[in-house]
Design a protein around this nucleic acid. Sequence first.
DNA 1: CATGAATGAGCCTTCATTCAT
DNA 2: AATGAATGAAGGCTCATTCAT
Lengths: 188, 188, 188, 188
Amino acid sequence: MTTAPLRKDAARNWERIVSVARELVDEGVPLQLNDVARRARLGVGTVYRHFPTAEALLETVAAPGLEALAAHGEQALTDDDAGRALAGFLTRTIEAQVTDASLSPVTAAPVDALTRTSELKRTLRSVGGQLLEQAREARVVRADLTSDDLVPLMCGVAFAANVHSAPAARAETARRYLNALLEGLYVR
Amino acid sequence: MTTAPLRKDAARNWERIVSVARELVDEGVPLQLNDVARRARLGVGTVYRHFPTAEALLETVAAPGLEALAAHGEQALTDDDAGRALAGFLTRTIEAQVTDASLSPVTAAPVDALTRTSELKRTLRSVGGQLLEQAREARVVRADLTSDDLVPLMCGVAFAANVHSAPAARAETARRYLNALLEGLYVR
Amino acid sequence: MTTAPLRKDAARNWERIVSVARELVDEGVPLQLNDVARRARLGVGTVYRHFPTAEALLETVAAPGLEALAAHGEQALTDDDAGRALAGFLTRTIEAQVTDASLSPVTAAPVDALTRTSELKRTLRSVGGQLLEQAREARVVRADLTSDDLVPLMCGVAFAANVHSAPAARAETARRYLNALLEGLYVR
Amino acid sequence: MTTAPLRKDAARNWERIVSVARELVDEGVPLQLNDVARRARLGVGTVYRHFPTAEALLETVAAPGLEALAAHGEQALTDDDAGRALAGFLTRTIEAQVTDASLSPVTAAPVDALTRTSELKRTLRSVGGQLLEQAREARVVRADLTSDDLVPLMCGVAFAANVHSAPAARAETARRYLNALLEGLYVR
DNA sequence: CATGAATGAGCCTTCATTCAT
DNA sequence: AATGAATGAAGGCTCATTCAT
């Protein structure tokens, strides 16, 4: 299912909108379509034509980040060391969530506005599931974890890093928390 | 520092407001003071008199839950087994967060509307810190965790349990995630 | 028509209310009966019992000032120099208006809340009228001014002094403006 | 600096809003944006789009009056008789203030909502200042008046004319008061 | 296709006044 | 007489969405 290619000027507007949205997301401003339109020096209607809801726009902004994660995951699947592969994938995921403010809400949302987003999330879950399976077979990972737990746990770690932690420290905090989760709070 | 005792009718309204708020919170509806007033069949002004902001009301709703946690924590401090004590406290905390929707936002909020809330949060952090310290001295817990990490981590676990998990399953999910965090995803 | 004497505690409250109102007026805060009650640590009802409207309270606050002006005016009537007498009275009036924020609104108001206020205003107009009459007879004052013009003109001077003039400079500005009015902007 | 030309329908609404506001001002009703919207049979949002605050709307209503005054002042500057020129300008100013209820509050306000208003007020002060200067050089005006006094004095005269004077008589009263101010209450 | 003006529901908050206690 | 809790109309403002141009 391919979308019809956009006319050149429409494509330019599309880019403009997405890039403005990216800026807003980076500034921590909640996405408002009117706001985006003003900043992009476009009519609201134009923005609405391209993105029927703020969620659709946010997901579009998040897409490249999700794609990069998926790509990394595919790559990781070829790693011999299943434990390292999974750890690397999770680390990358957390880093991305903490760095890119568009990812958390999209990842945690129960429903998607764009089918493209659903596809990406499915892929990520699948890749994560495979990495987990390999790690489980290699007996490096506890048995009671399913592929369904990966996303929630990553969201949880990212959320934890955002609580009471200064923005600058978040990446480092997130790393520590992921480590704690991987190795366990308790010494054995 | 005791608050002046309310007149009987005022006390009845206070209760009414808090109980309506509790209902709304349980229904997952965001607290709005006008809304609360309508549901409680009271004038808006009455609600505003008792609770100047929605946050103040939410914190009031959350207070009993926080108190119960603090009480449990104080109790846990007397346990001989430091590891068990900490684990019990954290379990209780997570259970509460997942069960009572007023707790997460209050716990994660960087600022409080009521001094009572600040007190409670301080107490909880202090108790958690002592339990953690004892556990560390007993060498059952990794050394790089500070008392500042407890709240974020618990918020993270609660958040994770709310992602993609059916309401009914949340408590069980939360328990599993806390366990995973305590023991580590990785087998050693 | 004498008002029934107040019970001792009621009298105390009356004083308390008026003195708080005086403070608020001096601070430039608009009089609100609830506000007054809170500051006086009295119930709103008590304040309403004594003063049915904010205007009534304001007029009560203003009364001593008006009385002092009237007294000064009566005194001035005995002065031999009619011109000096009138000028002195007007100067005093302006000074008072600029110094005491309760006077302008009461003086300019077309209707009064208290009969006492109406009496005082009547007295002032009468005294002013007599001073003006004497000055006119002495041919020191233009003929086309009536006693009805005195209050408006004084209000105007006070108003002018409050426009674009820093609070500290107001008294001095008011004096200059009154002088200008007395002697005329134009040189002859 | 020209404002972007409005679309035809928007321009119609703009006119509608301003004309409704004019009516309200003339009726002595305090401007409220919701009120204006209702009377103009427009959505509140439309009114807010055109005029972010009630002050902005009031200043827009006042602008033509201010412009007319400025124009008259520029004209007066060419008059040979400096005394007559100044007197004419002041007369016109007072007439306008008494006739058009939008002028007094705008003139007396310490801050402006619109830059256009600030420009106009600056122009008026400048023109008044020049007329005053010329009159002073011609020795027809007292020396201790500065251009900063003109606006306050005119506001004062207008205010005086509004105190205790029936609406119909105001224009005449204002003229008398201005005359009194120019020539002085006292005969010399 | 693009535009951006218009809409108006909806939320927030204040405050003058009443009346049960 | 005193209290102060309760009231709710009234006003302010925002923002997601539509639709005429």
